[in-house]
Design a protein around this nucleic acid. Structure first.
Lengths: 194, 194
DNA sequence: TGGCGCGGAAGGAACGCTCGTTCTACGTTG
DNA sequence: CAACGTAGAACGAGCGTTCCTTCCGCGCCA
């Protein structure tokens, strides 16, 4: 039953968001899923597998959020950030929960090579997409061309990651205000859009 | 004996950097410190206390790294980032270890109100300092003044945080390359300094 | 001065508990 | 009735912590 798997993963996600990967016990998870140990272990080989599945799903969401914006030509580079952040629905780092999950995944990746690899994969993918956007801006002369687009992409990714941190850790973060600051930073003369 | 306390904290830091807060057991820590349980529990009330002490130290380093740059007038706003990142010695996020520790602190702050409070404190402090730098730039007309300096500061902090994530998680990150990307992003016409 | 005894610091075995996991018996369904 | 998926008790391991013991250095008194 695929629904059972989903039920377990949903419960796991709630637990992990609430308490972190290592601080949630299997029994917390079982209680949240309203399932017994036997039931859960039929679908997952263990805790590690569940963590892996949750992380994989979250990273897939991230990759998807970026991918579905590919090809769009944002009016300004500063819009790239909320282009992604604004993804409709509960996607990516739109919610504080997802942002928190992402932070936990980063921390977990520090000690799990397999997770680190998966993370690297997603980042590389995103980097290519963003670099493409940057390159297109450079062709249009909106951006100096004497810097490889990848470097600019890295700065943009750092911006997004930094925003994720803010969302997750320092409480809510207003994308609108953030973009204002960003826009000023970029020395753009255009003012905030109404 | 203060040296004992240091010995324990140093060992704990090494362990936490290697395995994360929750994945290092007390016995790992005891072995690393070459001390017995009785000895350690004389200086700390428990694991939580040790985590708290380590986190506090790390955050103090961050605050200090920003504070000691206060009053400086960086040539460009893009320099603010590596102004901090470059702190001489093994400070702040200069090392990958410190960056990793910071990521773990973020993750931990998601479930520890006291740590979150301490974090908030440090961030607020930093925000004030950066806002001051930004305001000075605005006064000089190097930056449009129609955005509150705090918002620009938030963007800069996100940048730094994003760089920390990159350092810690995605492997090494070259501050030089990062600043190039940033400079291009900011639409500045000045090219990389030799 | 020499021996004794005291106090604080460290050692490490042991504790109770909770962890992740396994296993067997039961209920349900086709 | 056979087959499957679930429940939940049970298990060993390992956790964080406690506590009793040992060790060591210094001062006190005969």
């Amino acid at each position: 039953m695929d629904a059972r798997r989903r039920q377990i993963l949903d419960a796991a996600r709630r637990c992990f968001v609430r308490n972190g990967f290592h601080a949630t016990s299997m029994q917390d998870l079982l209680a949240e899923a309203r399932l017994s140990a036997g039931a859960v272990y039929r679908y997952f080989s263990g805790k590690e597998a569940i963590i892996g599945a949750i992380a994989s799903e979250a990273l897939a969401e991230v990759a998807e959020a970026f991918a579905e914006r590919d090809g769009e030509r944002p009016p300004g580079l500063d819009d790239i950030v909320d282009l992604v952040l604004r993804g409709e629905g509960p996607s990516l780092a739109a919610s504080r929960e997802s942002a928190g999950l992402l932070v936990q995944i980063w921390a977990e990746a520090l000690r799990s090579p397999s997770l680190a690899a998966r993370l690297q994969e997603v980042v590389d993918e995103v980097r290519v997409l963003i670099s493409g956007m940057v390159a297109r801006h450079q062709e249009q002369g909106r951006l100096s061309s004497d810097v490889p687009p990848e470097r600019v992409a890295d700065a943009l990714i750092a911006l997004v990651d930094g925003f994720v941190v803010r969302r997750a850790v320092y409480g809510d973060a207003d994308p609108e205000a953030f973009r204002d600051g960003l826009r000023a930073l970029m020395g753009a003369s255009h003012h905030r859009r109404t």
